[in-house]
Amino acid sequence: MIDPYYLQQLTIGISLGMVYALMAIGFTLIFGVLNVVNFAHGEVYTIGAFAGIMAIAAFGPPFLVIVFIVLAVGALAGFSLERVAFRPFRRFSDEASLKSRAMREATLMSSLAMSIIAREAMELLFGSEFQTIDIGYLINKPISLGPVTIVNGDIIIFVVSVLMLGGLQWLLKYSAIGLSIRAVSNNPLGAKYVGINTDRTIVLTFVIGSMMGALAGILVGLYYGAVFPSMGFIPGVKAFVAMVMGGLSSIPGAVIAALVLGVAESLSTTFVSSVWADMVAYLFLIVTLVFFPQGLFGARRERV
């Protein structure tokens, strides 16, 4: 019989991991297509959370309605983000520009800029403190399962993660959009030459990825009851680590890595002070980069 203490820590770790995974899915999807990190994903997550709590404060709709509002706001945020921070760097369609690393990596800066602008704007509008949320909407009602305690939010987040992951895999494998996303991700120039509308595909990827990011934001916001302008930063870092560990473009890999990360953090709190638990993520990042440069689940593949 395992000590219930470790069972409880394991449960907390898995639930932490799922929170990271929720964010990592959209993050990895966008990376997979453009091969650059979208630094503004954390702010899309925050915008999703704010949209959700504003809807709650304004007219207190049922939970599912909030989800749809948040998805719509996320889609809009993703669309605008792509337009402002990514599209301008694809305006030259000659081969040299398309292959240029500098052009691609300039979007690192532009997405970082957008993320700073969005965060500062939210701080000006709402202040930097936690927002008050109607307690009835929080998804943290305890459920006892023998020696361990979980909350209803754990179940919701688990179901949503599975749906996201499954839905995305189906979309990528069996739909026309998915086919073009995979084509652009594999070789944007080639995709363009065979007649795929790469711009449209990229916009769609941003819309889908940002919808997932925004949904993650409101779910985690209601899970912890903590919505504030810089809430996207730490999950963003964890999602990034999960993505790198998972092999950069493998979504299931990122999810597994996120779970590993969550469990490692929660179990490490047993042995070291929680101040050091954050170090676990960075340690994993370094170990992965040094010993598994392809990630734990990344297939070897030619990069464009």
Binding site: Y5, I12, L16, Y224, S266, T269, S273, S274, V275, A277
Partner: peptide, 20 residues
Amino acid sequence: TEFFNRGLPDFRSIITKIER
């Protein structure tokens, strides 16, 4: 006795440790 970083989102691991 334990210290935490200000703004820590998840106290559950520490709470479980305290309970023990």
